[in-house]
Write a protein that binds this DNA or RNA. Structure first.
Lengths: 205, 205
DNA sequence: CAAATAAAATGAACGGTGTTCAGTAAAGCA
DNA sequence: TGCTTTACTGAACACCGTTCATTTTATTTG
């Protein structure tokens, strides 16, 4: 009965075809501005066909959401070979910001979009990879505390605070709230602010 | 010729009537979910009428945007009587977060929404009040440096970094990325993270 | 192989959106 | 009173996400 297997394979291929087109358009012109009809045009199928493979538009987002967190986790793994936990922490922060600046539309739906959660909040799996990523931060902070880099033993609060700082910097850029800086100087300014933050947690400020 | 004056007054009153309805609905159900027809229903006029007073939907946002920054600046002014610049700074941060938590929809359009800027980016006035608010932060940071609270003389970078930290905390909450915490514990956790940040810039971490 | 069945794809239709504009009603003026 | 200006209306346009009766294509059965 190789036929049902082929069917399944074809179904998966079709989903991937749709997903690839959707990702391309979402990244190009954003989620809101991408219509089901656009995606249908891109793959040269009718709009109705997409609904045979994805429940609705938010399920497309859900899948891309998962994929994007996997990609961030991959970035974080590049850091694991760094011995010194503090060095590892600040490099992780740099990679986080880099990810946000280089993949604005993915960052958007991971951390900035309100719709995906509200529409598919019943699906708890949506945050599984998010928790994996945050756990990586927590573990490094814990190591930093154990190694004596932070005097206060508060993994949770410190992790949160560090995340908020880099997330804030990325968000300010992605939402274009940097009108006080000249164009082209904006990302450097934010990276400079991150350096200030690093100095801060080094205790040098 | 009191008649033209009355006309102008009536025009202003009508704009306020529309704005009041729009603000109410935006706060209640968000900008995206509020339609021009909703606003028209609320004030018992036809949809077309609204376009006689506001160019388009984004201009409604523009006006509310201005109003919201005024409100934030008012909050910041409550802080000016605090003598110690460092105490003033951390209280300002607390007021900022409080504003975000208490006025999620206003914060949304001030700092999180991408549409208002893209649609009316030609209007430079849109950030005037934003710059006033940021200048207030800059000035306090400058005072903190002068008073010896910060060793590094970098008003711009330090201000940016501090804004990013509190903005990050507010944004994490508003976009509901706090699934790692139990409901009802979320804001306290973020406030706790802010306290960690305060300890940090006090040099105690 | 042909007919019957099952699966896949279609595209018109529904109710929604922001926005425009010809037409109507009211107000101001001579 | 008649004329002009202003205010307002609501139908119409082009889009949106989504559904579903219908048609096309593929597979199974006789």
């Amino acid at each position: 009965m190789g036929i049902t297997e082929r069917k399944e394979r074809e179904k998966a291929e079709m989903k991937r075809l749709i997903m690839d087109a959707a990702r391309k358009l979402f990244i190009e012109q954003g989620f809101e501005k991408t219509s089901i009809r656009n995606i249908a045009d891109e793959i040269e199928y009718s709009p109705g066909t997409i609904y045979l493979y994805y429940k609705d538009k938010s399920e497309l987002l859900f899948d891309l959401h998962q994929e994007s967190f996997q990609k961030l986790i991959e970035q974080f793994q590049r850091v694991l070979n760094i011995r010194d936990p503090f060095e590892r922490l600040i490099t992780m922060g740099r990679y986080y910001m880099q990810y946000g600046f280089e993949n604005p539309e993915l960052y958007e739906l991971m951390f900035l979009m309100s719709s995906p959660i509200e529409t598919v909040e019943c699906r708890e799996e949506i945050w599984e990879d998010g928790h994996v990523a945050f756990d990586m931060l927590r573990n490094i902070v814990r190591e930093c505390i154990q190694a004596g880099y932070f005097k206060i033993d508060d993994v949770e609060g410190t992790s949160m605070m560090i995340w908020a700082a880099v997330h804030g910097l990325v968000t300010i850029h992605l939402r274009k709230r940097t009108t006080m800086f000249r164009e082209g100087e904006r990302i450097p300014r934010l990276e400079h602010a991150y350096e200030r933050f690093v100095e801060l947690i080094k205790g040098k400020i």
